[in-house]
Computed example of a mutant assay.
Amino acid sequence: MEETLPPDSAGAWGVSASTSLEAYRALRADRSRWLPIALDIARGRGLDTSSPHVFSTGTNLVVGLGEKLILKIFPPLLRAQFVSERGSLTQLAGRLSLPIPGIVAEGMRDGWPYLIISRLAGTLGSEVWPQLAEAQKERVLRQIGETIASVQRAPLGPLAQIQPRWDDFMRAQMQGCKARHTRLGLAPKFLAGLDDLLRDAAKLIPMDAPPVLLIGEYIPENFLLACTNDEWSLAGLFDFGDVLAGWRDYDLLGPSAFMAAGRPGRVRNLLEGFGYAQLDFTLKRRLMALMLLHRASDLNSHICIEGWQEQADDLVELQELIWPG
């Protein structure tokens, strides 16, 4: 549904914010420029705008409308995220035991697509995770592994056509891998092993296997937790803006880097929940390759093992550190 701006806010998004990522980020940082438009969209839908809550994290413009709904607005230059989110929520609806947002309405405001989705109950994972006891972290990681497997059992449907194709994506990532990690400051002792790892990756990573739905970011910022009888559990999953269709192991990288911290019990629970009974050298090597090839890969920022740069002398030792056992 295409909507037009009311006369008093015509052109408020700004042409540059529709076409320039830098200009869009400036718009996003100044809620006074976009929140009135968001609230006008909500009012036009007959929704309660008396107590809006702006979410400061994430990429898009997101505002909570009371306790039940969220309005998520996507700039035109990130339209692919809108297509991804809408397609994923539609395809996964009713197929998971874990709550995900439901689409209540969708539309367009002056070329900017938006979704109105249901708001999930729970506490943001990033707020809770650091304080959890080790046994609770293992429990949650097993549930994350189970959730990844459950998502991947869902039929792809129209998402099978999402771009880029897995083989094209992987080959492009391989081609730019060394330059990327050199630019990001990966230590020379790890860069030295990249060529060997990439040669292995071409054989270890299936390019033509039947693809599954990949969320790409199973990280604490994208899930909710809830506590019952002093036990924390996964309570909801959201943010489906960067989905791919490809090889299943790719989705183990987020929790491996941000949450498992090289702890054997955490790694074991994550992998067993996912369905892997054995962690052998081949699997470690494939995961190490995929971690370096991930679209958001930056080992210096993402591996949450304190002092890991000093604990490993090459990529083989690093994979043993991240996935012990």
Results as ranks from 00 to 15, higher is better:
S16I: 03
G46K: 08
V267K: 00
A23G: 07
R286F: 08
M174L: 13
L270Q: 05
M170R: 12
L198V: 04
L244V: 00
D230W: 04
D242C: 09
R28P: 06
A192P: 05
G11D: 13
G265D: 04
D230A: 14
L47K: 01
L197E: 09
G87W: 03
W232K: 05
I37R: 11
S118Q: 13
N269E: 15
T123C: 12
P264W: 00
L197F: 06
L225C: 11
S233H: 13
R286P: 01
G262W: 02
L252W: 07
R171S: 07
F258W: 15
R171C: 06
S97V: 11
D195P: 03
D200F: 14
S126W: 09
R86G: 08
I148M: 02
E85Y: 08
Y114E: 00
L159V: 01
F82N: 00
L290S: 04
D251T: 03
F190N: 02
G193K: 04
D200E: 14
T90M: 13
Q161S: 13
R199M: 04
F74N: 12
E3G: 09
C304Y: 03
R266V: 05
G122N: 10
G241N: 10
L234Q: 12
G122C: 07
A201G: 08
L293G: 11
R286M: 06
L39K: 00
L21V: 12
P158R: 14
V15D: 11
N60D: 11
R142V: 00
L224Q: 07
R86C: 15
G11S: 13
T4W: 12
I41M: 07
W232Q: 06
D168F: 11
L287E: 03
L61R: 04
I215F: 05
I144V: 15
N269H: 12
N222L: 06
D167Q: 11
M288S: 10
R199F: 04
S56C: 01
R183C: 04
L124P: 02
P255G: 03
S88P: 04
L198C: 13
W323S: 00
L69S: 12
E138C: 15
G58C: 05
V151W: 12
I73Y: 04
R285F: 06
R171G: 02
D30F: 06
M207K: 05
V15R: 11
D280C: 13
P211Q: 08
R263N: 01
T228M: 00
Y24V: 02
L96Q: 12
R199T: 15
A93Y: 04
A42G: 09
V316I: 15
H294E: 12
P206W: 08
A179Y: 02
Q136W: 02
A235I: 11
D314S: 00
E231T: 14
I37N: 02
L213H: 13
P7M: 05
L27I: 00
G265V: 04
V243N: 08
T228N: 15
I148C: 05
I41Y: 01
I303S: 03
P6N: 06
E221K: 09
A121H: 08
L237K: 07
N229T: 00
I73W: 02
P130Y: 09
G58P: 06
W166Q: 06
G262D: 08
G64F: 15
A29W: 04
Y114F: 15
G307S: 10
Y24R: 04
L270D: 09
L141P: 01
S84E: 14
A38N: 07
D239W: 03
I37C: 10
K68R: 12
A10K: 15
W13P: 10
P188Y: 08
Q319G: 14
A133R: 10
A26T: 14
S50V: 06
F55L: 10
